[in-house]
Design a protein around this nucleic acid. Structure first.
Lengths: 155, 155
DNA sequence: CCATAAAATCCCATGCTATCCCAATTTAGA
DNA sequence: TCTAAATTGGGATAGCATGGGATTTTATGG
């Protein structure tokens, strides 16, 4: 199973190409389609991304459990498929970000790849910095981290 | 399962490399990825660390319901997965601490590896000494339950 | 159906950085 | 004290990100 960790900032060249971090590529190397799937995030000025096999998995999960999602979430999830783009790697492990997708995240001359475990996101570097600082503050204030460790890892 | 005990202080060279204590490495030698995962602690000027297996486990457990819409998961992901770094061992069992990570712990010319059972921490030696003294004082004052709770959680 | 232009893809070259490899030194154990 | 293991240091190497050109594919108009 793929695991995406850490944050990388890479440059976008004139052609709109960006290197996907090598460790992210390594996490996807067992897949048939050598590339990623991206779509615009609903909650953030950012892009959601993962491998194609996970997209298939998401489709299956929606088929079987659509009643578990609320109507709104169902609509959101369904529109993911319409918005999603398959971006293949070139020989050097780069993808080419389509203009409209890049615009949604405000990405211009560099892109920030953010690991989220099973998935990752792509942000404009400055925007993500702000978001991360705020998120970190929220986690510090609430006792979220304790619940997390205790329930899952604290054996 | 890996068990990290005792405290070791090792030097950081000009390239930012530190030897991970051999007993800590031994505790991880059954894992595929020969190295560790580190991220900045929320509560302390220190780094949390453990093997990649444990991080994969954490990712899986958070990922069970494809939760693209949870605010809490969002913050956790941004704080833990985005912040985490995979640091592989070199031939001599060293890791290279990235500058920003090292800065959070105030680590400059030497690093203190502190065993915490299933996980361990990395501190600046002086900072840890102070922290340990303060913790001891709290125990003497009778604030034992808090100290115990914190240690159990791995913060 | 063909010709041309535009765009996306592929291919190779470069600089930088992280990693590897080997040697020296220190520490721990017998 | 002697020996083996662990830590420390530095030069060499390989991998990655990046840039630019060449080639193929796709769209457009005749």
């Amino acid at each position: 199973m793929s695991l995406f960790l850490s944050t990388y900032v890479n440059k976008v060249d004139k052609k709109g190409r960006v290197s996907v971090p090598s460790l992210f590529r390594a996490a996807l190397e067992t897949q048939k389609f050598q590339g990623i799937v991206v779509f615009r995030s609903y909650k953030h000025p950012a892009l959601e991304a993962f491998g194609l096999d996970r997209m298939a998995q998401l489709s299956q999960s929606l088929d079987k459990n659509f009643n578990l999602f609320s109507d709104t979430q169902d609509d959101l999830a369904a529109s993911i498929f319409a918005d999603a783009q398959q971006l293949g790697f070139d020989g050097e492990g780069r993808i080419t970000l389509p203009d409209d997708i890049a615009a949604h995240a405000g990405i211009t001359e560099s892109a920030c790849f953010v690991g989220r475990g099973a998935t990752f996101q792509i942000w404009a570097p400055d925007t993500f910095k702000q978001h991360q600082t705020a998120a970190r503050a929220r986690v510090q204030q609430g006792n979220v981290s304790i619940a997390l460790h205790a329930s899952e890892v604290g054996q």
